[in-house]
Structure formats: structure tokens, C-alpha cells
Amino acid sequence: MPSKVVLVTGVGGELGGRLLARLGTDIELDRVIGVDTTAPRKVARKLGNAEFVRADIRNPLIAKVIADAKVDTVVHCSTTCHPAGPARRMAIKEVNVIGTMRLLAACQRSPWMRKLVVKSTAAVYGAGPASPAVFTEDSELIPTSSSGYAKDAVEMEEYVRRFSRRRPDITVTTARFTNVIGPDVDTVLARYFALPVVPTVLGFDARLQLLHSSDALSVLELATLEDKPGVFNVGADGVLTLSQAIRRAGRVELPVPRSVVPSVARFLRGARVVDFSEDQVRLLNFGRVVDTTRLKEEFGYRPQWTTEAAFDDYVHGRGLRPVLDGEQVAGLAGKVLSATGQVPR
């Protein structure tokens, strides 16, 4: 049976808000409901037939919203892997873990539920010197740290698997996105590559696989409108090394010893520029690439943007231009080095 009443969580975010607006124009859907603690931002006036309900998925009342509307499809977009800027860790963990538990409990009790779509992350595979060159959906889930955002995603996926066993009648789709980038999204990497001077780890040049925000949106929409059961890696074709990406963005690379990387991360976080978790730092050390064969052959979607094209669209859309101001570059480099106890040369 096709979806008729869809509920989308996390519509206060860029991706969830755009999905809500797109589904709101689909005449085959009877009702589209977006829930979050904050209203959709840029797309607030373009929701079509969709509606917004201010609700917190951590609150058991989310069950009443699902039951009263007789929701048959839930798209869970409120999970956060890497907040772009400094954020309260416990608040995000509550949404990622407690919020998911409350939402799944509500879905399990609903007799009208027939489909669940979950936005997850490829960060569940971790990143390290012993990692495989390419991760498949069957690779072991090993978050980098025992308390980071990637660990939240691993826990969330375990809850989803248990839910699927309890309600085998419900179609469950889990999409593990690589790092999403584009001209209209605010992410860790979007802020990182916009820095005039980009700190990197001396001796490392990680491989990065990205995903254009429009492809991420298309995958979620397709999973909502059609039955696509299973777990799928979602990433663009091709990779960029970290050094290549920095050059394409016209930034200046600042290699620093690995031992001072945590200090650099704290400096950038303290300056409220970008928030680097341990998971993200290790990604920039070792990189991560996923296999997308299942996405193309079983799910039936081939990303329209390659990693290189997605990154270039981000650069052009953000209006990034080569850094030419030598004094500005030297000044920022000096601040970074001073904050880490290094002596600028």
C-alpha cells in the first residue's frame, strides 16, 4: 500500500524542512505532518499541503500525534551526528537516543503504521588506521569514541533493529549518509572548508566521500513514497583527498602535529566557529569511503552528483574565493598555533 499520512521529524533542520515542503506538494498524499521544537526556517512559506506541529519527540505525547492523525509512515530526520557549531552534548544525545526510543515506542503501538524511514550516518563505521578501504552495509559498526555522536547513531540503529523484529509487518529503511554538503546546508565540513586557514594533521591526507544535499533529499523522498526495505549506504561516486578539497576551495592548508589536533579543535570550538568531535577529527585523519552498490541495485537510486561535483557546487554556492590576504592568513595561523602552544614561524 502506498503512503497516505506521513509524519516527518526534525523539520526545523535544513533536510527535514525541505523534505516536508517537497512531500507537501505530492497530490497522492492525504496529509503530511512535520514535527519539531522549532518551525521550518527557509521553507516555512512553501509547505504546500503540509502542516507543522510543534512537538518534542522526547515527550510521550508524540504517540498522541501519531495516533490522532492515523500516521502510516514516519520519516525520522531529527537525528544529529555532527552539529555544525558548538552545541550542548547532552541535549543532542537526548534527541538522538531518548527521542528515538519514544518515537519507536509510539510507532510500535500504532495499528496504522506500515513504514519507517530513518536517517542515519556512515559514521557508525568509525574511522581508523585498521579500517577497511571501503565499508559495506555488513561491516562492523565501531564508533570512534565511547561517548560521541556516532555512538548515538549506533545505539539508535540497534533500537530500530529491535523495533523491526517486534513489528515485522512494517517496512523499515535505514539510510547511512556520508557527509552531506551543498550550498544550502550548514554542516561541520561546510564550516571547516570555509576557514581561511584549514588545519590538517601532519602526515595524513584522508579520503573523503561526500553526498550532495539534493541527493540526500531525493533518497529520503523515494524511501517515503516507495517500499525500500533494508539498510543502505548513501554516498556520491568518487572521492576527494583532504588536500585536494582544500585547494579546490581556495583555502590555505596548515598542517599541525597530531598531538596538538585536540587543542586546535578546542580553539575552533571555543571561538564558536566549528565544533569538532573526536569522531570528526578521526575522519579528517583517516577518511571513510562506503560501497553504494546496494543503493544503486536494490534501492534503485544513483546519486546525480559526484563527490567532486558536490564539493564544487558547495564552493560556488557559498561564494568561496581563494584566500589572497597574506596578513589575514598569517594572523589566523598565528592564533591557531598560539592556542595550541606552538610558536608561529
Rank of each mutant, 00 (worst) to 15 (best):
V343G: 04
L23P: 08
S145V: 01
P303N: 03
L332M: 15
K151H: 07
A309M: 01
A50G: 15
D30T: 15
F286Y: 14
Q328C: 06
E155T: 14
V260G: 08
P129H: 06
A265P: 02
P303L: 03
G12H: 02
R18D: 13
F135V: 04
I98R: 14
V185D: 05
R345D: 13
S78G: 06
Q209K: 07
P2Y: 10
V289G: 02
R251N: 07
E14T: 12
T178C: 15
A265V: 05
R191M: 06
G85E: 12
Y301L: 04
S3K: 11
H76R: 06
R191Q: 14
L283P: 02
V65N: 13
S3H: 09
S131T: 02
R45S: 15
C107M: 15
A130H: 11
S259L: 08
A50L: 12
G287A: 04
G12A: 05
T241A: 00
S277F: 03
T79R: 10
V201M: 07
K119M: 14
L208T: 00
G182M: 01
R165A: 10
G238Y: 05
N96Y: 02
V43Q: 09
E137V: 02
R161S: 10
S146W: 06
A91H: 08
P322V: 06
V274N: 09
M1V: 12
G300I: 09
S78T: 01
E51W: 04
L61V: 11
C77N: 10
V6G: 03
E157M: 12
M156E: 09
A106G: 15
A39Q: 11
L29R: 13
R288C: 00
E51R: 14
A122W: 02
A87C: 04
G334K: 05
D312T: 02
L195W: 12
R41A: 14
F286E: 02
S218D: 14
R269H: 07
D313S: 12
V32Y: 09
E327D: 15
A249H: 05
I181V: 11
R302T: 15
T306P: 07
L141P: 02
G128D: 11
T224G: 12
P255V: 08
W112L: 03
S146G: 15
D36V: 01
K64G: 12
A310N: 01
A39V: 07
P257V: 08
I246V: 07
E137G: 04
K42H: 11
